[in-house]
Design a protein around this nucleic acid. Structure first.
Length: 437
RNA sequence: GUGGAUGUAGCUCAGUCGGUUAGAGCACCGGAUUGUGGUUCCGGGGGUCGAGGGUUCAAAUCCCUUCAUCCACCCCA
């Protein structure tokens, strides 16, 4: 039996790498220009970091979706199921509350959840995460949402829907949960099994149910947004007013609920219709109180994450052009044994400027050119006894078939000229490939 | 955890009233073409038909079990 990747994991092969790089490069540019700096935190943390942050009614906990294990030192560790807790742990650990406010941090990397696999849902998946910490201003909420939208815009992704709502302050939430209990307990027999469980643990989350019966019961009821106290309502209005003023497109979602318990006030999601049953590209919200909860100073913050796989899936579905793998500018062919060492050394010097590949065995011109062609190189450079006598190489343009003898001393300059020519007809960049947005 | 679909060559897939040595396209290797590739032509290698068991004179094909993958429920990125 052939070995296989663990269920829910997969390989990102060479052909896929450029689009990942392009996405990350674009993200880094958009966020960087907004003063968001990159931070890298470990993929695992003490389990308490997540246990404290995620909340006991979150599905991550309820469904035991976290990868938690004991290491050889008897430490209990958890593979991060999301980024926020780890980033805030670093925020606390490094005293970032003393940094200029707000502290803006983004990250990218793998996250892990022991869930069942389907399209857009993996056990090891990848996220881009962004945290804006240290301000309770509605301006920060608007900026966070705008940055998420701006990133998708910069990637050239059409068809995104931004939903913005508010889960209120803890008191609002409590009041709403009590309201839901009062309204639904008498009819709980009509609820789906999952929602009856939610009714006990966290009634708010019944709003998430896709069960038609549940939704029918909910239809006449008020939404969280309808029951916000003054402070949260005012904050929410300020956020949406700002987004409108900035021209950031969004839809109000009165019943938005997020999967993690720590959210306060603003909550938002970005959806896309073309990625299967999992329509969420990303989401986030405000988490005032979470830093304190994790043992740090009581500073407010807001953050979001999007799933890289899902965004790439959406981009592909929308037919957005993404860069292909970089191909060599030149492929050096050794026509005899002596030339093998010669082309290897020649390649080394040319690599100061270009992607250059070469053969490792002597080939006849037919095989050598085939090797060069298959490497995708723009030109083949042939070296054999005839060339050696002339102190030269033969350079053949693999697209046009033109070839000429070039003195070794002139080769670097010649390749410079080739590289500066317009991209080839098939659009494959010959060097330094990739999309710059 | 539950449901559906699918497992045949490196890849994408044909192939079931059960019947000889299991096929195609692409890919790979060689030759036409030992100093000229990508096109073309010729040839070749490569399969325990996901695994195990059963029925049968005979199983890729029928039955049972099991595993895997995909999709969906649930939930989320």
């Amino acid at each position: 039996m052939r070995p296989s990747a663990v269920k829910g994991t997969y390989d990102i092969l060479p052909d896929d790498q450029p689009r990942w790089r392009a996405l990350l490069r674009t993200t880094a540019r958009v966020l960087g220009r907004a003063g968001v700096d990159e931070i890298t935190t470990p993929v695992f943390e003490h389990r308490e970091v997540f246990d404290k942050s995620v909340g006991e009614s979150a599905d991550l906990v309820v469904q035991k979706e976290m990868y938690t294990f004991e290491d050889r030192g008897g430490r209990w560790l958890t593979l991060r199921p999301e980024f926020t807790a780890g980033v805030l742990r670093a925020f606390i650990e490094h005293g970032m509350h003393t940094w200029p406010t707000p502290v803006k941090l983004w990250s990218a990397g793998p996250a892990f959840r022991a869930e069942n696999v389907q399209r857009g849902r993996f056990r090891q998946f990848h996220q881009v995460n962004c945290e804006l910490v240290g301000s309770a201003s509605a301006l920060l909420d608007a900026e966070a949402i705008a940055l998420l939208v701006d990133t998708f815009t910069a990637l050239g992704l059409p068809g995104v829907h931004v939903k913005v709502g508010s889960v209120g302050d803890p008191e609002d939430r409590e009041r709403y949960n009590a309201y839901l209990r009062e309204a639904l307990v008498p009819q709980q027999q009509a609820l789906s099994e999952a929602s009856r469980e939610r009714l006990r643990l966290n009634p708010l989350r019944i709003l998430d149910s896709k069960d038609a019966g549940d939704q029918a019961l909910l239809a006449p009821l008020a939404r969280p947004l309808d029951m916000l106290a003054h402070a949260a309502r005012e904050h929410f209005d300020a956020v949406t007013d700002t987004l409108s003023a900035w021209g950031v497109p969004f839809e109000l979602d009165a019943s938005i609920v997020r999967g993690l318990d720590y959210y306060r006030r603003t909550a938002f999601e970005v959806h896309h219709a073309g990625i299967g049953a999992q329509s969420a590209l990303g989401g986030g919200g405000r988490y005032d109180g979470l830093v304190a909860n994790l043992g740090g100073p009581d500073v407010p913050g807001i953050g979001w994450a999007f799933g890289i796989e899902r965004v790439l899936d959406a981009l592909e579905g929308e037919g957005v052009a993404l860069p292909a793998r970089e191909r060599a500018l030149a492929y050096l062919v050794a026509l005899d044994q002596e030339a093998v060492a010669e082309v290897a050394q020649l390649a080394r010097s040319l690599r100061a400027e270009h992607r250059v590949e070469h053969g490792y065995v002597a080939r006849n011109p037919g095989k050598g050119l085939r090797d060069a062609d298959r490497s995708g190189a723009r030109v083949a450079v042939l070296r054999g006894s005839r060339e050696r006598e002339a102190g030269a190489v033969v350079v053949k343009d693999l697209r046009t078939g033109e070839q000429l003898v070039v003195a070794l001393d002139d080769l670097a300059e010649h390749l410079r000229v080739v590289a500066s020519e317009a991209p080839t007809a098939d659009g494959i960049p010959t060097t330094g490939g990739g999309v710059a947005r």
